[in-house]
Structure formats: structure tokens, C-alpha cells
């Protein structure tokens, strides 16, 4: 059954708040929360209104006082509108502020480019000491919250909006290996081509492409690179080793996100041919749900499989850059 990662996050946060008095929930009027749901901890839920710079700055002040604030707003506003506060107040001071950024990628769908976040991963992973996690489903969102509960520095948790399918249902036996923040998750192993993805639909597209390729007689490795910072560079190098090349898949502009991170690692450590599947350099021109837009802009299993075949056939890349 599909579950929304942001709702799973909310419930995981409620557990943390009940268990630890240092944990606060600062909300940017997202409508995701009902203070009463926090029970005895409800005084540690504060809706700070529609003021994102203040939201991040206030969280920094609280964290500097020894508290553990979780901040909720949309990814577009956390990563761009409030970016200077994230950089100067949070990252510069290495404070344990957790930014739960909902509506990552194209998840805001028909709400349009003002609400899409297609640059957030590039921005956040550039900030020194900022942990950047993109869970592939609700279960991973919960694990990411729990695993980073005591992390001493900032955490950017990119969440979606609506329900997405559980990853386990899409991974062949024996299923996915355990999810650990900071360590890439192997979903399939294979020698012919490597597919590296992050986020719910990109990871599903990677798995779908691996099935397509398997039917053609090729075995693809699939790596869920859910943590972009710190990056599990060894896993990327291992996945690329001996293959025809690496396809990256992400719900992000092709510049600076997962594809950029993988290209940096391979360029320095293990030069390999790369194809980046992601949002082309454009703002969405039409309305559509998240799936519609992913289809329209070519972030699909078919596109990933085509890119992988090109790598294996050694043909030149003719797609958009």
C-alpha cells in the first residue's frame, strides 16, 4: 500500500518528541500537523507562520541553546527562499537543525514551478557539513528520522507530497538490503551497466529499467544513493567498476544534484561514461500531477533503459543536456 513519506515523517517525529524533551517541531504553516497529535509534547509544536527565513533562524537559535528543532516547510522554500539562513545560521554554525522539506522535486505537481524544488539537492549538498537524505519511500523516511535523531549537525530530509509505493514491493528477492543513512543501498547487482538513483519515482524507474534490460539479456546494478551528503563514494565506484557506464536518475534538474555528485566522484576516482536522467533545463510549462510531469520530462523507466542501452552499445549521447 502506498504511504506518504511526509505523513510517515510526521508520525516518526511525534514519537521522537514524546521520547526526548529537546525535540521541537517548528512548522511553517504547512497544514500537515495538528498540535494535539503530539499529546503531552504539544507545547513543543509551534506554528511560526508563513515566514521561512524566520523559521530557519529561529530553529538555529533554539539549536544553539541545546534543543533539537525539526523544521517543516516545502523544499522550494527551505532551499531557496530561506537559503541564506540555512547557510549562515545553521550550516556555518554546524547546528543540529533538521529540515523536513516536503514537496521535493515535482511532487507539487499542478501547483507549478514556484512550488517545484529542482535545485534543492544541488544547493544543500554544497553546504559544508549538511547531511542530505532523499528517502525512497515512507519506511525509509521513518528510518532516516530515527537514524539522524542524535546527529550533531544539520540534516536536510527531502520528502514528497502524496503517497508513493513501498520500495520493498519492487525489489526482487531477497529484497533490499537495510537502509542506513550515509551508505548507498544496493537494490540489484550486475556487471553490465550501473543505475544510480535517488527519490521514490527515480528509484522505481531504475528498477523498472533493470527489468527491461534483463529481458534483453543485460544485468544492471541498481544503487539507491539516498544520501547525497556525505556521499558513499566507494559504492559509486564499485557500481561503475567494469560496466559500460553509469546512468543516474533523479527528480531534479540535471545540474548539480545526484548526477553531478556521481560525476564528481567518478571523474576523480574512476572515469566512466555517464548519462544523467533528470529534469531538463526548463521550468514545467504545463499543469500535471507528479507522475504526468515525470513522464513528460522523461524521468521514466523507459528513458533510463534507453540511456543504459546507449551506454552498452557505445553510441553517442544525443539527448538534451
Amino acid at each position: 500500500m502506498s504511504v506518504s513519506a511526509r505523513e510517515a515523517y510526521r508520525d516518526a517525529l511525534a514519537e521522537l518528541m514524546a521520547a526526548d524533551e529537546r525535540v521541537w517541531c517548528l512548522d511553517g504553516d504547512t497544514g500537515l500537523f495538528d498540535a494535539d497529535a503530539f499529546g503531552p509534547a504539544k507545547d513543543r509544536y509551534v506554528n511560526l507562520g508563513i515566514a521561512e527565513h524566520n523559521l530557519i533562524g529561529t530553529a538555529a537559535g533554539m539549536a544553539a541553546s541545546g534543543l533539537l528543532p525539526y523544521v517543516n516547510t516545502m523544499a522550494a522554500f527551505a532551499a531557496t527562499r530561506a537559503l541564506e539562513a540555512v547557510k549562515v545560521d545553521v550550516a556555518y554554525n554546524a547546528l543540529p537543525v533538521r529540515i523536513a522539506a516536503t514537496h521535493g522535486g515535482l511532487a507539487a505537481g499542478h501547483l507549478g514551478p514556484t512550488h517545484h524544488a529542482l535545485e534543492d539537492l544541488a544547493v544543500m549538498r554544497a553546504l559544508p557539513g549538511c547531511t542530505v537524505v532523499v528517502p525512497a519511500d515512507a519506511d525509509q523516511a521513518v528510518r532516516a528520522v530515527r537514524q539522524t535523531a542524535d546527529h550533531p549537525g544539520p540534516v536536510y530530509l527531502r520528502l514528497g507530497r502524496g503517497p508513493t509505493p513501498p520500495l520493498a514491493s519492487a525489489v526482487p528477492e531477497p529484497g533490499p538490503e537495510p537502509f542506513t543513512v550515509g551508505r548507498a543501498q544496493w537494490l540489484r547487482r550486475g556487471p553490465d551497466v550501473a543505475i544510480v538513483a535517488c527519490g521514490p519515482y527515480p528509484v522505481l524507474a531504475a528498477l523498472e529499467a533493470a527489468e527491461v534490460l534483463a529481458n534483453l539479456g543485460a544485468t544492471a546494478a541498481v544503487l539507491n544513493l539516498h544520501t547525497l551528503a556525505p556521499l558513499d563514494a566507494d559504492a559509486v565506484v564499485e557500481a561503475a567498476h567494469g560496466t559500460a557506464g553509469v546512468v543516474t536518475v533523479e527528480e531534479h534538474w540535471r545540474t548539480g544534484g545526484l548526477g553531478g555528485a556521481v560525476a564528481e566522484v567518478l571523474g576523480e576516482r574512476a572515469p566512466a561514461r555517464i548519462r544523467r536522467v533528470g529534469m531538463p533545463a526548463t521550468f514545467a510549462e504545463v499543469a500535471g500531477g507528479q507522475r504526468d510531469l515525470l513522464e513528460r520530462y522523461g524521468i521514466t523507466g523507459a528513458a533510463v533503459a534507453a540511456a543504459a542501452r546507449e551506454l552498452m552499445e557505445g553510441t553517442a549521447w544525443e539527448g538534451e543536456t
Partner: peptide, 24 residues
């Protein structure tokens, strides 16, 4: 207490310290 220089940051930070119970 906090690095400053980019203007317009202090009062939001102050809100955080004050919410945490500090006189600020």
C-alpha cells in the same frame, strides 16, 4: 554567540533563543 554580518538575521535567531527560554 552567533556569527553575524549579513543583515537581518539576528532577530529570528533571537526568537529561537527566547523560545528556548533564554533572556535575549
Amino acid at each position: 554567540e552567533m556569527p553575524t554580518g549579513s543583515l537581518g538575521h539576528g532577530l529570528a535567531l533571537g526568537n529561537g533563543f527566547a523560545l528556548a527560554g533564554r533572556r535575549c
